[in-house]
Design a protein around this nucleic acid. Sequence first.
DNA 1: CCTCATTCTTGATCTGGATCAACTCGGTTG
DNA 2: CAACCGAGTTGATCCAGATCAAGAATGAGG
Lengths: 227, 227
Amino acid sequence: MKSPASAALLKEYMVRIPYLGVLDPQQLDALARDAVHLIFSPDEVIFLEGDASRGLWIIEDGNVKITKLSLEGNEYILHLLGPGDSFNDIAALDGGPTPGNAIAMSLVSAWLLPAEAMEHALESYPAMARAALKMMGERIRALGHQIEDLTLYPVIVRLARFLLAQAENPSLSGPGVTRAAIAAHLATTPETISRALAKLQEAGAIRFDRHRIIITNGDLLRSMAVL
Amino acid sequence: MKSPASAALLKEYMVRIPYLGVLDPQQLDALARDAVHLIFSPDEVIFLEGDASRGLWIIEDGNVKITKLSLEGNEYILHLLGPGDSFNDIAALDGGPTPGNAIAMSLVSAWLLPAEAMEHALESYPAMARAALKMMGERIRALGHQIEDLTLYPVIVRLARFLLAQAENPSLSGPGVTRAAIAAHLATTPETISRALAKLQEAGAIRFDRHRIIITNGDLLRSMAVL
DNA sequence: CCTCATTCTTGATCTGGATCAACTCGGTTG
DNA sequence: CAACCGAGTTGATCCAGATCAAGAATGAGG
């Protein structure tokens, strides 16, 4: 960490991560000092499912996808992440293997808080473990909802929900988040996404400005999301 | 807790739950003393998704399903549970709302370790929080695999995997675990399960003895599970 | 401004699995 | 043992969404 500006940004992002936000400034500083800063080119593999965890990653810039891959090469995107988002939290906190593949979707710069530093922090600061427990609970509920969506609702509903989620989380847009990526996240195909978007537009819920998607009628979209 | 025999069984089950197993005998005893024993009839609702958590449940006898329900009434079974299994762990540990519906599939007797007792234990015994963190990590990985299965593999593969999992976990059999239940767990229909089982039998991987399913060729079944 | 490479759209066809319906098999109850 | 009832099987049909194929829009690089 040479650049002080960069170090300040890292700390800003760290305090927004719930289980790091409970640390006091010196503790946070100590942890941040161990951070390593790395760059990945588009499509570069950051880690693969089952790898030993190298620690906690925090994105400075760019988009990253966490995926599952079938033997036949089909991909499911578990999470789409952007600047300020962390990933590999689970493995970093419980010392287990990484739970998915992490792949850069664009030019990505990110920090790595090494596993040993995380482990040390977890042992030294009990409040962090308690906060991590809550975070994991949230994550489990989110995965439960993801399963619910996939098994109980058709593509158009899932897409409407995705767009609503995206609206309040800017990290889900940006380059690399193509129709193919949305498709892989909703467990369908780019063609189906294209058709579903056309239907939503027809219904008047959204509009295309060039290739950007704009929500023109949030209530209508919400009703189509069965929410 | 009047019956000493029953209390002994409860403690036996408790030590097998990883994050309770780290407690020493007195701590375990103290927690067990607060347990309440309850009975549910078949199809009775134990709790609904989003309810405030009453605490940690441990099954003495019978089967319980944890489900998600769509507005149209379609059901997805997240977990099938039997004697010795616990449920509502997440909410009991993080104090959040219950993450699914719990419904008795047969006559069920179960203990409830009240939320306050769990909370108190979690605060008093730091080792328990650490162990709980690991347990949640495992749970998250398992949900990840469930999503992977649902999105990337066809019914027959999911069924083969289910049968293999069932073979080493007797709590997944027993009355109430009908074809309809398996179907709801694999996000399909009873008819499709029936046909898929017929195919597996035809291939020689399994056999029916009356209505019990017997694995006759584990390797073949594993190969059909793409494992 | 043109070219080339993606990504996106749109249409035609195909298919795994859902749905609907009829029937069979046990097991239970009076 | 007759009547019944829930579970399981089996066949026929249907449909959401996948797949295949062929343009059309967009954007980057020369």
